[in-house]
Design a protein around this nucleic acid. Sequence first.
DNA 1: AAAGCGTGGTT
DNA 2: TAACCAAGCTT
Length: 308
Amino acid sequence: MAGAVAGWAVDERPFADDVLEWYGLVARDLPWRRPEAGPWGVLVSEVMLQQTPVNRVLPVWESWLTRWPDPAALAAEPAGEAVRMWGRLGYPRRALRLHQAAAAIVERHGGAVPDRLDDLLALPGIGTYTARAVAAFAFRQRHAVVDVNVRRLVARAVEGTAEGPAAVSRRDLATVENLLPADPETAARASAAFMELGALVCVARAPRCAGCPVRERCAWLLAGSPPSDGPARRPQGYAGTDRQVRGRLLAVLRDADGPVDAELLDAVWDEPVQRDRALRGLLDDGLAVVAGPGGYALPGDVTARLPV
DNA sequence: AAAGCGTGGTT
DNA sequence: TAACCAAGCTT
């Protein structure tokens, strides 16, 4: 058994074992991975991490959990406080939905984060990825947890292609589940390890294959690292979009203690049609409310001035 | 089911 | 420097 560990030939040893061994050596000590984080801490971290890098989440997560150590504490405050605490994490609708999720957890589950996949999935802002992540990481269940990192890792290591699919499919879930060890606790750890490998080594731009624990069996590397064949993803674009205007408007509301006059909002964007459309969007989404004649505020910041 | 939704670091 | 990229969800 040349090159074998404990009787495994390289291609017989489970994929997850190689990744788990690597994970044991290099895993980051992230606060939401510690047992004391609890299910609420895990849930909050997963929502904050949606489309947002770890380093930016860390300080906000700490403040959030200190102020709102359980769902009931958050649900007891106005939604606007959640939006304000969210700060500049981006996609502030997540703060609103996290507040709604906290209320739903209090109402439907007695204030305890549910441990069943379908109960998690029914919460606002919790989709396929997040529900599985919470069930696996907080409750140590065996579920395929497939995010962009895992899609890319599987595309390369298993399928031999440079890029993963844009969205999760049933087939992806099945493929990943087949890679999971049978024991739930080990499977949960493996799920974190897959994501960590995608985040630290099998990265999008310039993968660090030399330090990869599965380089000897990676289909993409064995095929000579062929470039992506599919069409290029169309760029996001941000400058000049409604998103940028919404961001500026909301920043003004967030940084104020209470209602602000419309003139303050007018100052953030010259073009009135787009500005009004963006403001209307914030109102429609519940991220802002009318606060008296010509005034606007975060939801809950409206105490003194009410619409006439 | 494709498009909308923030923000900032990296290359 | 402009483009890319980051633990997605919703409609």
